[in-house]
Nucleic acid binder design. Structure first.
Lengths: 99, 99
DNA sequence: AATTCATATGAAATAGAAATCATATGGGAT
DNA sequence: ATCCCATATGATTTCTATTTCATATGAATT
């Protein structure tokens, strides 16, 4: 097992801002500013995090005029989120959220 | 989508030591000291990380004399790792590992 | 070619996680 | 009851990721 690849994969997911972006993109491709408004986060913060998501190929971009439209790589994201959801439902309670 | 649960989930995976522990436990349940030897990491480091894995229900413990035997929650771990592997194979190259 | 809008980027500041080290706990053997 | 082995825990230090802020880039519009 290639541990660095795996940890990098999970690391990219393991951030609240990025998770909000992913959640937002589930309903469809969106521009940076639109994402910002929707999730109520600053533009540069969102851009930095979009970059990380891109580097891991969790999202794709296309240009549209001066806007850049980001979309999810659904092949990867959807099945993963489904598994997580299952685990969370089965195993997670208040205990899980104690630090 | 419950973002904090999700990020906690991925956070727990996103650490090299914990990933090594998981990889080690795939081949079967093991005691703390045995894990330490196999992955060549210090005992207290391993214990701290086992705790985090436990809190997320990624692993289970049972006592056996003075030893504590940890085992994987295969329901969750195996399918997840399979998906990650697929993604890594399809999408990851040197680019992915640039910081 | 100057202005504006949308986004990206770099560097510094901040926050947060992980490792480390010293010590505590707890079971079993003597 | 004392000692030893296996593991856990708390506090501090160290390391790394994230945010922030200021600025750059780049496409379209005038």
């Amino acid at each position: 097992m290639n541990c660095p690849s795996y940890t990098r994969f999970f690391e990219t997911f393991s951030n609240k801002t990025r998770m909000k972006i992913i959640a937002e993109l589930i309903s469809g491709a969106k521009s940076v500013n639109y994402i910002c408004k929707r999730i109520n986060e600053e533009q540069s913060k969102v851009s930095h995090n979009l970059k990380k998501l891109s580097e891991c190929n969790f999202i794709n971009v296309k240009a549209e005029g001066k806007k850049r439209i980001y979309s999810l790589n659904k092949d990867t994201i959807k099945p993963i989120l489904k598994l997580v959801e299952k685990h969370v439902k089965t195993y997670c309670n208040e205990e899980c959220h104690k630090k």
